Simulated scan of single mutants.
Amino acid sequence: MKKLIETMVKPLVDHPEDVRIETEESGNRVVCNLTVHPQDIGKVIGKQGRTAKAIRSIVYSAAGSQQDGKTIVVNIVD
């Protein structure tokens, strides 16, 4: 999932070198914390959260076929 998120986010931002994804796994839940440069937060979230929602939808769809019943959560951390 980490590579998929990087592939989607890096072209959106002005500072791709500052894109960081930390993955935490506990039980049947995987949490991906996405950190970007402070100037790029708005680009990743998008108007009314549409970009963030689209990123989450794609990750959830991809995870459905790859993860064994695990729930994927994508957080955008500032």
Rank of each mutant, 00 (worst) to 15 (best):
K47I: 05
K53Q: 14
K53V: 02
S61L: 15
H37V: 03
T51Q: 12
R50N: 13
V31F: 09
R50H: 13
A63M: 08
P38H: 04
A52M: 12
S57Q: 04
Q48Y: 05
T51N: 10
T35L: 07
Q48M: 04
K43L: 15
T35M: 06
Q48W: 00
D40K: 06
D40F: 01
Y60E: 12
A62M: 15
Q39R: 14
N33Y: 08
A62N: 13
G49T: 02
T51C: 09
I45P: 10
I45G: 14
G46T: 14
I55L: 11
I41V: 15
R50V: 12
G42T: 09
L34M: 11
T35E: 11
V36L: 01
K47D: 13
H37S: 14
T35S: 13
G49I: 03
Y60D: 12
T51W: 08
V30W: 11
G42P: 09
I58V: 15
T35W: 00
R50D: 06
H37P: 09
V30G: 10
V31P: 07
V30H: 04
V59E: 10
Y60K: 12
V44A: 06
L34V: 11
S61Y: 07
V59L: 04
I58D: 14
I55Q: 03
A62H: 09
C32T: 00
T51R: 08
G46A: 03
A54R: 08
A62E: 14
G46H: 08
T51G: 06
K43R: 14
V30I: 15
G64K: 01
P38I: 05
G64N: 09
I45S: 04
K53M: 03
I45N: 05
Q39S: 14
D40N: 10
P38F: 01
V31G: 03
A63P: 02
G49E: 07
P38R: 07
G42M: 01
V59C: 09
S61G: 13
G42L: 02
G64H: 04
S61C: 10
K43A: 11
G49Q: 04
K43C: 07
T35D: 02
V31S: 09
A54I: 02
G64E: 00
P38D: 02
P38K: 11
G64Y: 00
Q48N: 12
I45T: 11
A62R: 10
Y60T: 10
K43F: 04
R56S: 10
G46K: 07
Q48A: 14
V36F: 03
I41T: 11
I45H: 05
P38L: 01
K47Y: 13
G64D: 01
L34T: 01
L34R: 10
Y60F: 03
A62L: 11
I41G: 08
N33K: 15
T35H: 10
T51H: 06
I55H: 03
Q39F: 08
A63R: 07
L34S: 11
K47T: 15
R56E: 02
V59S: 05
T51A: 12
A54S: 15
K43T: 06
R56A: 02
Q48D: 13
I58K: 09
V30A: 06
S57L: 03
S57N: 03
P38T: 10
V36N: 07
A62W: 13
G46M: 01
T51I: 04
A62V: 13
N33P: 12
H37G: 06
A52S: 14
Q48G: 02
I41M: 10
